[in-house]
Amino acid sequence: MLLPKFDFHEPATIAEACQMMAEFGSEARLIAGGTDLMVNMKHKVISPNHVVSLSRIDDLKKLDLSDSTVKIGACFTVAEITESEEIGKKLSALRTGARALGSPLVRNRATIGGNLGTARPAADLPPSLMVYDAKVVLTKSSGEREVSLDSFFKGPGVTEIQPDEILTEIRVDVPPPHAGAGYINLGIRQAQDCNLVNVASYIALDGPDGTIQSARVVMGCVGPTHLRASSAEKLLIGEKPSDELFEKAGEAAMGDCTPIDDFRGSAQYKKAMVGVLTKRTLGIALKEAKDRG
């Protein structure tokens, strides 16, 4: 299996990269870690005339932490996320997702921007980023805009990114005290697998033993994009957390998802697992919410 022919570009700055994307438009593809792009190019799923590498742009590799926000450069690698104590402390579910992704070799190459930009419904990083209400920065020559992840994914492989834009940064507000999140991915193998179902949940309590002030539940592999379980979220808000409540939230989430039968598993099983994982991730979120009090 051989790569199709293409021109390779290595801009050194974001501005230069934006210029190229403006020039080549949909003829070009951006490459960061290449763990997705190279596979698809070898399979001739995509044959871009231009491949624009982001690997020489140091500005994209930064991690910028303050007390209130975490800003992660799009080319920050998944391995770096797994190793960051600060991310682990502030955004534990993101680190759980990063640890679940691929193998050490893949994590060394794969980037956070790539994991979002490829828009695979089974990807490991979107669920936790979405429950943290993360935003992405899309940059082009004439300026930048901030887009919520909630409205970023449009379908399998399709996002809000326009041909002349580059996803440059991910911004997440640090969760308040008494808030926590959990992420679980389910596959046949314990590692190096394509997820069958993945779910992340987030809750914020109004006090150490308080009621749920806000809640977000995001489900992967059960729709064309990652989905919010809005009826589960509604059901949680204003309630005291309990196993029974989480069980009910799981049942509600099952109603919020739209899985299909495919060779990886039946729709029925995936739906049932949404229920199980929602309940379990809420349990993890609650524990963290209490620990972070």
Binding site: I188, R189, Q190, A191, Q192, D193, C194, F263, R264
Partner: peptide, 28 residues
């Protein structure tokens, strides 16, 4: 016992790679 199989439809194999042909690895 647990994970490997050829997923086939009308004689066509759908899982022709190690991602979808679930051979256990070191973690398993």
């Amino acid at each position: 016992a647990l994970s490997e199989q050829f997923v086939m439809e009308d004689g066509k194999t759908l899982n022709t790679n190690f991602l979808d042909y679930k051979m256990p690895n070191a973690m398993d």
